[in-house]
Design a binder for these strands. Structure first.
Lengths: 341, 341
DNA sequence: CTGAAAGCGCTTACAG
DNA sequence: CTGAAAGCGCTTACAG
């Protein structure tokens, strides 16, 4: 077993200096063809691999991107991560994953990842970031190496990639209106979340634009998770005057809502039309198949990584912060239908 | 803005040597109380953070664990990752995520992560690892820093954490038998997968133990994904002699299967009982709620991380490789019932 | 309990 | 196009 080959060993085999080995590996065009080939051969023979810690120390780079998630356990992020990895991996960057809660639990701050050289850049999926965790990030010299995705920070203009939440929510509600619904409820996402607000406000807007009064009792506090769907279903079933359609802030809410309705023999879509948001993998296979607004999660991850990398390369100025809004598509399936008077 | 504080700066402020700073930080008990406090104060004042690359280079450790997934986009892994992170984070380890396909696409090998110092240990979730990607891993000096999880390698006894796939599959089939079913089909996972084999063999075993003949035509090739469920549903509906119950190798298969049945008015569970495997989040909220074998994904991730870390600390011998089998629970919900007539 | 000094394995001006 | 040499920022025997 070869024991930790170092650049010295390769230099000896190739008969050149370590400087040349280094150049041949990281900037091949700068050495002669003959040398390059000799070096590559020596690398192969010895099984040499550049020691990352040494390189990182010397270059002051980590070639690592931190991906900060509000909740690693949420399957919503799986495809997003894949999109990110798709971009990062071929460019030689590694993906480090962390959870907001764990950073604050450890008494750390996001900026520490820059300060101690663990990451060169970060993609943040948490717009509800603890003030303390985000401390100093806005004024930091590395603020150009930060991109928000899905969610965003309200009082700081970091570049960000997000879905067309407002247009999507308006379209979702309009879809219900066009089917003939006038009694349309909304189940919100978690309190204080930027997506919750964007989608809720758009729900209100869509109703108002169509001269449909907004009724407080049909606006339900929620969460993006499954449980809130079930809970709201129970509340609705107890109401005297029920809505005929429901716009849910997420597919998970919608699925759990429908599930509870089904258990209690409330027919979806006939007695109650339901539309979600996200188009999670299972939406298509749910019973009934879920009508929803599709978010391109793979593309979102890819875009976020792309924009981060390009910012890191170009070292763009702070001012021109990009906001990329990803298209969103209405996918009509089985969970929506006209109201049955 | 403080520009990259280094240990020298802290030493100056605290009025001690850099050696003492280093000790006070990584081995506090070895310095006097007074010094320790002075150092901590100086650290706070300066905002010092240990440069990871320098520390890693010096200690020849990365404090990073590679998590290798066959497919990052598969939501099945979300909670597992969370379980891993739960253990890693408080112990100061970072989690690096990679995908098997991307490693081989880059012409890399797993062992490279050790050789170039990117990782101190790894948790591998892919038992179908490319021979080339896994090359040299079995004989490597670092083989003690490798743990397999969920899946495992057949010809190498790495420590591994897995669910009780065989017992679980037997129980799942027995559940159907106890309900009175005799015509029981099986939809397999992907060809060549160790879980596929374990669950399939147990299906056969359970049938044989109960003197129920195994019928080739009711054994379907599949995949753990949604599509195979839909495809098999179509095949079954065309059969003259249909099974009355189906054991699916995954919940995703089961959901898509039921979905397709529902669309075609085949009633689950009355005309067709369906049991899955995994207990994904949505199983409970599916319509009908899915009967399944629950895998403790959070616990699995936690265990894998735990056992890896303890091996790394104790530097256990190669021979005593652990296999931890995690309990699995039958969760009876709405998708299974006795056969009608 | 503490300090001076070596060295981890690279990369990169600098000089030729 | 190539080499000699400095230095990235730590940690850790060694000595006291």
């Amino acid at each position: 077993m070869k024991k930790s080959v170092k650049i010295q060993d390769v230099a000896k085999v190739a008969g050149v200096s370590t400087a040349t080995i280094s150049r041949a590996l990281s900037n091949p065009s700068v050495v002669s063809k003959a040398t390059r080939e000799a070096v590559l051969e020596a690398v192969k023979v010895t099984g040499y691999r550049v020691n990352r810690a040494a390189r990182n120390l010397r270059t002051r780079k980590s070639n690592t991107i931190l991906v900060l998630l509000p909740d690693i356990g949420n399957p919503f992020f799986s495809q997003i991560l894949q999109g990110i990895q798709t971009v990062l991996s071929p460019r030689g960057f590694s993906m480090l994953i962390a959870e907001t809660g764990q950073i604050s639990a450890a008494g750390e701050h996001l900026i520490d990842y820059f300060d101690d050289g663990r990451a060169d850049g970060m993609i943040v999926f948490d717009g509800g970031l603890d003030r303390d965790v985000a401390r100093d990030l806005v004024e930091a010299p590395q603020r150009n190496q930060v991109v928000f995705a899905c969610e965003w920070l309200n009082n700081a203009d970091f570049p960000s990639v997000r879905s067309a939440n407002r247009r999507g929510a308006v379209e979702a509600v309009k879809h219900l209106i066009e089917l003939g619904h006038k009694k349309i409820a909304h189940i919100k996402g978690p309190e204080g979340n930027v997506l919750t607000d964007a989608r809720f406000e758009s729900y209100v807007k869509a109703l108002e634009e169509n001269d449909i009064p907004v009724r407080e009792e049909w606006i339900f506090a929620g969460d993006f998770d499954l449980n809130s769907g079930r809970d709201v279903a129970r509340k609705i079933m107890k109401m005297n005057e029920k809505p005929t359609a429901i716009f849910c802030a997420s597919d998970q809410i919608a699925c759990a809502l429908i599930s509870e309705f089904s258990k209690n023999n409330v027919k979806v879509p006939d007695e109650m039309a339901v539309i979600g948001f996200d188009d999670i993998e299972l939406a298509e296979h749910f019973v009934p198949a879920l009508t929803t607004m599709r978010q391109d999660r793979l593309g979102l991850g890819r875009q976020a990584a792309e924009i981060l990398l390009s910012r890191m390369m170009n070292d763009k100025a702070i001012s021109d912060s990009d906001v990329i809004v990803m298209d969103v598509d209405l996918v009509v399936r089985e969970s929506t239908a006209p109201p049955k008077n």
